[in-house]
């Protein structure tokens, strides 16, 4: 463990299944990745938190619906309030929606089928903790794997999010966003959103699956490295 590596936790629920991938990915991106078990969470000096994909508590009732009541969520709410970066991927995004840390909700995919494939997303906003390695308009090839990734928000919320720069990513094809490039029916082809402060990001695509050339894309590195850097800077800011 080196000093400049921030400590980023990975919240593990019963049924999480991208926890090992997320720990591996955060290490690759320059973090000191720490597993955090759902019911006795590490309260040490975490600089950020990642909520991984999977099927927390079997996703019975509704995706993320049970996880929101888990003990570790108290810690995550506190970290979010303190301005530390929190990244929810796939089921992690669904959980952040259920807890109300992010606006909107999630429906089943438009075609009612699970979809696993590499898609392109376009970076829509740089005003958050996950984008300092990229420029607005950058496109990235990142895999999705979900049955409920059809993001929904009402028109008023969408308008607010757009004006606040809270839409982080949209599905696209070579930078063009359109109905034919929307894999799951999401409102405005939204693939990821942040809170108003920009330190909490939820996204359906899996950046941790796009970090190594062997896996076909390294486009997730920008997001993960940005988070690592933001963890370092927010630690400095909070500790001042």
């Amino acid at each position: 463990m080196t000093v400049d590596r921030p400590n980023i936790g990975v919240a593990i629920f019963p049924g999480s299944n991208c926890d090992a991938d997320s720990l591996h990915g955060l290490e690759l991106a320059g973090a000191n990745a720490i597993p955090v078990w759902h019911d006795h969470p590490e309260t040490g000096s975490l600089d950020g938190m990642m909520i991984p994909g999977g099927f927390s508590y079997g996703d019975y009732l509704r995706t993320g619906a049970i996880a929101q009541f888990s003990t570790v969520m108290d810690l995550i709410r506190q970290m979010a309030d303190d301005g530390r970066p929190v990244l929810g991927v796939c089921n992690g995004f669904q959980i952040l929606l259920e807890t109300g840390l992010l606006p909107g909700g999630m429906l089943r995919n438009r075609d009612m089928k699970f979809i696993c494939r590499t898609v392109q997303i376009r970076l829509e906003s740089t005003g958050n903790s996950f984008s300092n390695q990229n420029a607005s308009g950058d496109t990235m090839r990142i895999p999705i794997a979900h049955g409920e990734g059809n993001y929904y928000a009402d028109p008023k919320t969408l308008a607010e999010m757009n004006s606040n720069g809270q839409v982080a990513f949209r599905y696209c094809d070579n930078g063009i966003v359109g109905a034919s490039t929307n894999p799951n029916g999401s409102s405005e082809s939204i693939a990821g959103v942040t809170n108003a402060a920009g330190n909490v990001l939820g996204m359906m695509p899996h950046p941790e699956r796009a970090l190594e050339p062997q896996l076909g894309s390294t486009d997730g590195l920008g997001i993960m490295r940005s988070m690592v850097e933001s963890c370092i800077s927010s630690r400095a800011a909070i500790n001042v």
Partner: peptide
Amino acid sequence: WDQYDHMVMTNTTVLPGHDAAVIR
């Protein structure tokens, strides 16, 4: 195979659709 998560565990280096899948 679009309906199967074939990438979880981040080891699949040759994806479905070729002669054989490869896992690192």
